[in-house]
Design a protein around this nucleic acid. Structure first.
Length: 489
RNA sequence: GGCCCCGUCGUCUAGCGGCCUAGGACUCUGGCUUCUCAAGCCAGCUACGAGGGUUCGAAUCCCUUCGGGGCUACCA
């Protein structure tokens, strides 16, 4: 698949795990991955954990697990290593320090002794005066004396990048040419007073050091691009050596706000618990901001890799629609082979305490899965659907119970009992034949009425998998005894 | 406020000057099928934000306007 022309493509997914990876992150990861695979390039996974206040080890581990679960395998990054590591920014501090020193020496950056309070006050004034907020350049050209004075006051400096005059123009693969006047890009901080790097420093240094050729990331980073480019310049890169940028549109919540806890679940872990298949999530997310160009919507990972082009990605944001995800998930579940469906189902059954894992249970599950496969949208519906086959203390659901207390129901159940008990072979054809002859033809009842009562008696609910198959699986003894029990309700 | 990005059915999208009385999918509504629930099948509702240009012709190009969003941190 790799061809020589594109084999040098290197893309990275570089989240800052300040929480669980969410739908938006994953869409970005998916596109990064698809682009790398499509071009036969390298997919790099880097953890941006420079903000120690917010990033935790647990979130980092969960991010790794999530990507693995989704099948977005990486060529360089945590666990697999690679020639350009380490891939955790917290382990690259010496590298940032080295570059920071170079920038200071070359004059590309300078020490700024302004305190947070002073800067805040400055911004306040700018807002009041209605001018562009940003660092005014107080410490841009400090004399040796001034520096000594600040040091004597005990001030610790941050390292600030010196933006040059003029503007930055670059071609975004998705948005076309984008231009920023440096009037609106103030000198920005590269390093905190404690010597730790900021995003703007680390991201640019890493992308260069890791030889990243394409930066596909969220639209929220679009306006920080001139700052990255300024760092590239300070590192001595020529414009044709900069990575290519492509800013992906947002994935929005239902109410048109940025996705958050408040409007719909954002954590992928939640989708996993609900019984969404990774393939469904990826398929749905792929359709948010991208399409294969025709009316196809059922996309496998393989097809995504074949078809994905950055140029086909939209520039406009997309709303997340749970209903559509569910529809796709249902389609994907139906398309599962019996073995795959079994594999996905088992954890849900055991976690719900429906089965403990004995061979007998396994065989029953295997036999029962085909009759529910086309009736579920999410895997977490399985326990409730198959519960009637395994439950030790059988009881009819309260709302269904009311429906079989009338005389007609009692008669139906009694008659059902009479024709079922003598049945020699217990299979769904025989059960259906007997019941249909007795209840529909003989008693003249509508099938839904006749079978409805039996359904409630046998499965405990007026909603169940197909009745005759269910009774076959349940077995003759249990079926008979449940019908008897229902008659005496 | 300033800078930047974005604007086709409720939602995701097809559309790159004539094939568009705008197509598909999800949702919703009605129907068929039917042992319930699903699945499946059929039908229906609903969109080019607005206003100006350019052009023989515009959803497609330009301008304005309105609307939405992002950034404006010693967050990313």
């Amino acid at each position: 698949m790799a061809n020589s022309q594109n084999s040098q493509v290197r893309v990275r997914f570089a989240p800052s795990p300040t929480g669980d990876l969410h739908v938006g992150n994953i869409r970005t990861a998916l596109f990064d991955w698809a682009f790398a695979r499509h071009t036969g390039g390298t997919f790099i996974f880097r953890i941006e954990d420079t903000d120690k206040e917010r990033v935790t080890d647990e979130y980092i581990q969960r991010a790794i697990d999530t990507l693995k679960w989704l099948g977005l395998n990486w060529d360089e990054g945590p666990e697999v290593g690679g020639p350009n590591g380490p891939y955790l920014q917290s382990e690259r501090l010496a590298i940032y320090k080295e570059w920071a020193d170079k920038f200071l020496t070359s004059g590309a950056a300078y020490h700024c002794y302004c305190s947070s309070e002073e800067l805040e006050a400055e911004r306040e004034r700018q807002r009041a005066a209605n001018v562009a907020p940003g660092y005014g350049g107080t410490c841009r050209n400090l004399t040796a004396d001034q520096i000594e004075k600040f040091k004597a006051e005990g001030r610790k400096p941050v390292l600030r990048m010196r933006m040059d005059d003029g503007s930055t123009t670059f071609v975004d693969e998705i948005r076309g040419e984008v231009s920023f006047d440096h009037k609106y890009v103030p000198d920005f901080v590269l390093m905190r007073a404690d010597g730790s790097p900021l995003y703007t420093l680390a991201v640019a240094v890493d992308d260069v050091m890791m030889k990243v050729t394409h930066v596909l990331r969220g639209e929220d980073l679009l306006s920080s691009t001139p700052r990255q480019i300024q760092v590239y310049k300070a590192m001595g890169l020529k414009p044709d050596e900069y990575p290519t940028f492509a800013h992906l549109p947002f994935v929005m919540g239902q109410d048109n706000a940025k996705l958050s806890k408040r409007n719909g679940e954002v954590s992928i872990a939640w989708y996993r618990e609900q019984g969404f298949l990774p393939e469904a999530i990826c398929n749905y997310l792929a359709l948010l901001g991208w399409s294969p160009g025709d009316d196809r919507e059922d996309i496998t990972m393989k097809e995504l890799v074949e078809l994905f082009e950055v140029h086909d990605v939209h520039s406009s944001p997309a709303r997340f629609d749970m209903k559509k995800l569910e529809a796709i998930n249902g389609d994907k579940i139906r398309a599962l082979s019996p073995d795959e469906f079994l594999k996905w189902s088992l954890p849900f059954l055991t976690n719900a305490g429906i089965i403990s894992g004995t061979d007998a249970e396994l065989n029953l599950v295997k036999a029962a899965l085909p009759i529910i496969q086309e009736r579920i949208v999410k895997l977490d519906e399985i326990p409730a659907m198959l519960k009637f086959l395994f439950v030790k203390e059988f009881a009819v659901e309260a709302d269904s119970k009311e429906k079989i207390k009338d005389d007609q129901s009692k008669q139906v159940l009694k008659r059902a009992l009479e024709v079922l008990e003598p049945l020699a072979s217990w299979n769904h054809e025989a059960i259906e034949g007997a019941l249909r002859a007795a209840l529909v033809e003989e008693m003249g009842l509508k099938p839904r009425i006749a079978f409805g009562a039996v359904r409630i008696a046998a499965t405990g609910s007026h909603i169940s998998p197909p009745l005759f198959e269910s009774m076959e699986l349940l077995g003759k003894e249990a079926s008979i005894s449940r019908i008897k029990g229902a008659i005496s309700l």
